[in-house]
């Protein structure tokens, strides 16, 4: 009876994972297809990768996207860490309900609404104070930071919740100053969470079509905008090649990050064990 049930669950899981991975794998396989038809295999070829390298529009858009992603991930991580600390370590403050609401809402808010409203804000600000001057990289970066802060805050929050507060309290009792406690104790402990927050922000920024559609200017076409306008017309093999490159880079990045974090986490656990052993 029990094994029969397990069998059903295993089959279900197998189908689930196949469902999650087969489309991506097929997409990657067909980027090496010689023929222009992206769905019938003819022979192995790298010509779509070569076409990609010769496509200046795509390369420029990729550079703009990377620049925006690095800047917005960095700022979003700084602000998001502060927000995460505020949410977990400060038990009560004025307007905390609104604060925590603001830290979740952008995650579930339809991006069309976020994009539309940000555009209105930028238009109104330009009229009032003359900044931002037109729309472009600055406005896209601000939009991405706003969107990513909440994701970083959630990650930091969950890490801090699982963390012992007593280290920070001990440092405070010993007269440690807030800034030093932050840099000497809190930040080193949440480094893995910060790295995942940064990486997630980076990929979210690199992936965003909707916000960018609203707040980009004519001189700042990001990579997803190029991809989106291209695939609206149908599938094309050079996009398969581009997708394979992006997914490959992201996957390698994630695996390296996971490995590094695992190492750090183990070292941290070892330190704690040693400290406990010494005290005994």
């Amino acid at each position: 009876m029990n094994s029969k049930r397990n069998y059903y669950i295993l089959t279900g899981m197998g189908f689930g994972f196949a469902f999650l991975y087969i489309p991506i794998l097929l997409l990657m396989v067909f980027s090496f297809n010689e023929a222009k038809v992206t769905t019938r295999w003819s022979s192995f070829s790298l010509k779509w990768y070569q076409a990609l390298l010769e496509n200046d529009a795509i390369i420029n858009a990729a550079l703009i996207s990377l620049k925006i992603a690095v800047i917005s991930a960095t700022i979003a991580t700084i602000v998001g860490v502060l927000a995460g600390i505020a949410l977990v370590r400060f038990k009560k403050f004025k307007g905390k309900t609104l604060f925590s609401g603001l830290m979740v809402a952008p995650m579930v808010m339809p991006e069309v609404i976020t994009g539309l409203s940000l555009l209105f804000l930028f238009v109104a600000m330009e009229e009032l104070i003359g900044w931002p001057d037109g729309r472009g990289m600055t406005t896209i970066t601000i939009a991405h930071i706003t969107f990513c802060i909440t994701f970083v805050a959630v990650i930091i929050q969950s890490r801090l919740q699982g963390m012992d507060e007593s280290l920070e309290e001990a440092a405070m009792d010993l007269g440690g100053r807030p800034i030093r406690i932050l840099f000497d104790i809190t930040l080193p402990l949440i480094t893995p969470a910060m790295i995942s927050g940064w990486l997630l922000s980076f990929t979210l920024s690199l992936d965003d079509v909707i916000l960018a559609s609203f707040v980009s200017g004519p001189s700042s076409t990001t990579l997803p905008l190029v991809i989106f306008s291209k695939i609206k017309l149908g599938i094309s093999p050079d996009i398969n090649a581009l997708a394979t490159l992006i997914i490959g880079i992201v996957a390698i990045g994630i695996v390296i990050a996971a490995w590094l974090m695992n190492k750090k986490e183990k070292a941290y656990q070892r330190d704690i064990q040693m400290a406990v052993a010494q005290n005994e």
């Binding site: 994972f17 999650l20 991975y21 489309p23 991506i24 097929l26 997409l27 067909f30 992206t38 769905t39 990486l199 997630l200 990929t203 690199l206 992936d207 079509v209 997803p224 991809i227 989106f228 695939i231 149908g234 599938i235 996009i239 398969n240 997708a243 992006i246 997914i247 992201v250 996957a251 994630i254």
Partner: peptide, 22 residues
């Protein structure tokens, strides 16, 4: 394995299905 697709581009995941369904 569940989280990994979440890290890859949303747009490209939609695109992957366009090649399957057309």
């Amino acid at each position: 394995l569940v989280i990994l697709p979440f890290w890859t581009s949303f747009l490209l995941r939609v695109y992957a299905w366009m090649g399957l369904l057309s």
